Computed example of a mutant assay.
Amino acid sequence: MGKRIYVEIPVSAPMDRLWHLTQDLSCHSRWDLRFSRIIPTNAAEPLTFRYEFRLPFHTIHGTGTSLGTRTGVQGHATSVLKFTTADPLSPIGPGAGYWRYVPDGKRTRFITGYDYSPGWGRLGRWLDAPLIRPALGWATAWSFDRLRLWAEEGLAPERTRNAWLLDAGARAAAVAAAVTLCAVRPGPAAGLAAGSAVAAACLAPARREVPRAARCLRRARDGKTGVAPSSLASLKEPA
């Protein structure tokens, strides 16, 4: 296990809507970049499910169990999860995590914390801290902002994904054009123009419909939200 991944975002939407978009598995896989498909395997509690993550030439399969609870004081809610996979190509192995729903005035603080054992054997342990764990943290935060846009503004996850792809493509094209300019016409003027183009590509604010991981907090604001609910310890292990 490494440093736990923590992500938090405020969502200005009713709790019922946020609960539905996160607890309904067909909705969950639409906004969460970490899953391509989630299939329930029972209708009882705790819920058991299979999940898929599609790569270009392979689909990673795994299983999980989860339990959501809305009986907390002052409208608080929690959801806990355990997951595992036997797929040798998965960069992550068995793990566990939680969601917290914390009312905050007219908003809800939507929070996750999770950890896992690296996959890929010794190579995975070596790559986890510098590469895999930061990439998963970014994917989680980006997904949380995509969820926020869906819950607050009704923007479908497919639309916001496409908006992000167009935005990223435009920024990449600006950087490529700047590099090409320096190569074709070297000199101070070209360097200044190229630097300005790169700065604009990196610093220009994204449109409101473009999900951004930077809109999320990556550290717990208090001791309670950074700790898993007690129900996680008693949740059964996935098959």
Rank of each mutant, 00 (worst) to 15 (best):
E153Q: 13
E152W: 00
G64C: 02
L147S: 09
W99A: 07
T78V: 14
P46C: 12
A200N: 10
A177H: 02
V227S: 10
P46M: 04
L149F: 11
P188N: 03
F57H: 14
D128N: 15
A201D: 11
H58M: 09
P188G: 00
T71Q: 11
G226P: 07
R37D: 10
A141V: 02
V184L: 15
D32S: 09
K3Y: 15
R146N: 12
G62M: 12
S66L: 12
F49W: 15
R161E: 10
W138G: 03
P134Q: 01
G72N: 06
I111S: 04
L192Y: 01
F83N: 11
G64I: 04
A228P: 15
A13L: 09
H76F: 08
A151V: 06
W142M: 12
Y116S: 05
R50P: 00
E45I: 13
S117R: 03
V11Q: 03
D222T: 11
R100I: 01
A183E: 03
T140S: 11
Y101L: 13
R161L: 11
L89W: 04
P103A: 12
G64W: 08
I5N: 09
A151Q: 09
T63N: 06
F110N: 00
L149R: 11
R207W: 03
P130G: 01
R125Y: 09
C27E: 15
S117Q: 05
D16C: 00
A129Q: 08
L89D: 01
T112R: 01
P118Y: 13
S196P: 00
T160N: 04
A176G: 03
V210G: 06
A239N: 15
T48P: 06
V80Q: 13
L123P: 00
S196G: 09
V210I: 11
A183L: 12
G64N: 01
E8R: 08
W142T: 03
L25H: 04
P134C: 02
G2A: 05
H58I: 11
R159F: 10
A206E: 02
P211I: 09
R100Q: 06
H28N: 08
D24G: 02
P46I: 10
C182R: 08
T78N: 11
T112F: 04
A199M: 14
T69K: 02
T63L: 00
K224D: 12
P229E: 03
L192P: 02
G75Q: 00
A190V: 04
G93M: 09
S12T: 02
S26V: 07
D32A: 07
A176N: 04
V73Y: 05
L81E: 15
R54L: 02
L165I: 13
S29G: 08
A228G: 15
P14R: 12
G113S: 14
L149Q: 14
P10F: 06
L21C: 09
W150L: 05
L33M: 07
R215V: 03
E158H: 03
D16W: 04
R221A: 12
A233V: 02
R122Q: 00
R159L: 13
S90K: 01
T85R: 09
A173S: 15
P186N: 09
T69I: 02
G119I: 03
E158C: 08
T140G: 00
K224S: 15
A193P: 06
Q23I: 08
A176D: 04
L67G: 04
R159D: 00
A199W: 12
W120D: 00
V102R: 15
E158Y: 01
L166E: 07
C27N: 05
R159Q: 15
M15F: 03
